[in-house]
Design a protein around this nucleic acid. Structure first.
Length: 522
RNA sequence: GCCAGAGUAGCUCAGCGGUAGAGCAGGGGACUCAUAAGCCCUUGGUCGGGGGUUCGAUUCCCUCCUCUGGCACCA
């Protein structure tokens, strides 16, 4: 099976991480863990984007060197990922020497191959915002508003990347390989944007304005533009990549192409336009253009999260308050992958209590209790042809099948739906079978044994399905069952590989998910 | 402005051509193995407005309204 290479966007180290950063990393972590569970080799790359104007300014304001500044912020990100159980294999920090060297090698190659050129740019320039202004920035009266500060006419020489000449190629590629952008409505958005593309991409900033960046190797008066630096992380930190012409890329190509998990705000133009064209220019084939999984945003009461509105959600605080498990579960369960959702602490607590505490946790607890009370915690293989038992087996197989499909298609919310609906079915099964009644009737011995066996099996499946989302709790549930995860590549109706042996001893019940009690719920 | 998305039960959202679904909230009930959890039944909707296509539309097309996002170096 081909190894699986998945990346997140790298976060800009200009401020503390918020719930959106956390969502993207947890989402990617869940996908990576699922692929591992399904038996694939996985490389999960994430990191931080540390260069640029804003960092340079923030560092100056804080009175520290830019590197020191980004190191501090970077530490916050890494601490949060550890707290949330985001388990990556590679860490991309763009100030690392190896990354800089890779970017410079690529730039030099493009330069030598004539894909870059130097040209003059002139226009209105805002000193305060440090950017060129276009007609769109003019106010209704035809002048630039006060928010831009002093506006001057500037003429500046810069380096450009020949982007526009690849426009038709990209359009054709998107038509030929629509699976490159998930969900599909984002493909339409990207296609429209590409169709309107004109002009090349300015890839340099003069050092007089910006020093905190990677120098152009062929023109030391410039540093490179953010995207030529940041996007390259996906290959510069990939296993086995070497930018040098004629390098041996055997190992790299085992992993490539990647799946890039990104937010909807950076699809156009960065990941949807610049990146595929950059890869093509470097020599990647059409089959080596990576797939983009574009996720939505968490809004707060229908509004965009922003510092100025003062409604930023701090995932660190949230994890301390409710636990990392509740946060992880909520972030992937309560949003349709690709769409936006409304963030609500109340729903976070609700999903945790309903699905995990009352659902899986209680099912595990009551099952183990009954097994110990009636059978000393031992499972027995029996001949029992109850229709109700067969129905539950059918439900298990169906859940597994649908879960697998959903995970492969990155519909994480649907996969979790399968998990919780299986738990619900098993809880209903307990009431239908009423083992406490069966236990009183000697003629029902086989049926009781079969019911307990079926429940234990369901729990084992449910705990396995939960593992990508909540690895620790999934493992803890399996430990109480004294079982390994089931093998997802053996979707069988109990027989064979995934069976419990006759006489299997179950562990003691220990509450897995203590209910979260809030003032409102009392 | 251009492009895209959303508008479905009180709330949060699935569904997307064939007599409206889930969870939560509300109402009723039976049970006791369990984290007073779980289970069963049930009240809620002319699926944003208006046209059209179709034997048939929440689902396709047009149009209007409202909200959101991208087009500007914030997941």
């Amino acid at each position: 099976m081909k190894p699986f290479f998945i990346t997140t966007a790298i976060d800009y180290t200009n401020g503390a991480p918020h719930i959106g950063h956390a969502y993207e990393k947890v989402l990617t972590d869940v996908i990576a863990r699922y692929q591992r569970l399904a038996g694939r080799d996985v490389f999960f790359l994430t990191g931080v984007d540390q260069h640029g104007q804003k960092v340079q300014q923030s560092a100056e304001k804080a009175g520290v060197a830019p590197q020191e500044y980004v190191d501090q912020i970077t530490a916050k990100f890494r601490a949060l990922w550890q707290k949330l159980g985001v388990d990556y294999d590679g860490w991309a920090a763009t100030t690392e020497a190896s990354h800089k060297a890779c970017v410079q090698t690529i730039l030099q190659r493009l330069h030598d191959e004539g894909q870059l050129y130097k040209a003059k740019q002139s226009g209105y320039y805002s000193v305060r915002q440090e950017q060129f202004l276009t007609e769109k920035e003019r106010g209704p009266d035809g002048n630039f508003g006060p928010e831009w500060g002093e506006v001057i006419l500037v003429e500046e020489e810069n380096w450009w990347f020949k982007l526009a000449e690849h426009k038709q190629w990209l359009l054709d590629l998107l038509d030929r390989r629509p699976e490159l952008v998930v969900p599909s409505f984002r493909l339409a958005e990207l296609r429209n944007a590409v169709a309107k593309l004109e002009g090349d991409l300015c890839i340099s900033r003069p050092k007089s304005r910006l020093t905190w960046g990677i120098e152009l190797p062929f023109d030391r008066d410039f540093v490179t533009y953010v995207w030529f630096d940041a996007l390259v992380n996906y290959i510069s930190f990939a296993p086995g990549y070497d930018a040098a012409a004629g390098a041996d890329l055997t190992e790299f190509k085992r992993w490539w192409p990647a799946v890039h998990v990104i937010g909807k705000d950076i699809l156009v133009p960065a990941h949807g336009v610049y990146w595929p064209i950059m890869l093509k220019a470097i020599g990647f084939s059409d089959d080596e253009i990576p797939q983009l999984l574009v996720h939505g945003w968490w809004n707060i009461s229908g509004e965009k999260m922003s510092k100025s509105l003062g409604n930023v959600i701090d995932p660190d605080v949230l994890a301390d308050k409710y636990g990392a498990a509740a946060v992880r579960y909520y972030l992937v369960a309560d949003i349709t992958t690709g769409r936006d959702a409304d963030f609500s602490e109340e729903r976070l607590v609700q999903r945790y209590n309903v699905d995990l505490a009352n659902g899986l946790g209680n099912l595990l607890n009551r099952t183990l209790n009954m097994a110990h009370r009636y059978r000393d915690g031992k499972l027995r293989l029996t001949e029992c042809n109850e229709e109700n038992h067969a129905k539950l087996r059918g439900a298990v197989v169906e859940s597994l099948t649908r879960y697998t499909l959903a995970m492969r298609e990155f519909r994480i919310h649907s996969a979790i739906e399968e998990f919780s609906s299986l738990v619900t079915k098993a809880n209903a099964f307990v009431d239908q079978e009423a083992p406490w009644k069966l236990a009183k009737d000697p003629a029902m011995e086989n049926r009781l044994d079969s019911a307990l066996y079926h429940l234990a099996y369901c729990l084992r499946v449910a705990a396995t399905l939960l593992q990508p989302v909540l690895p620790e709790q999934g493992k803890a549930a399996l430990d109480q069952l004294c079982a390994d995860p089931i093998r997802l590549d053996v979707v069988s109706d109990f027989a064979g590989e995934n069976d419990f042996p006759d006489g299997h001893q179950l562990g003691k019940p220990v509450p897995l998910f203590p209910r979260i009690e809030t003032p409102a719920s009392e």
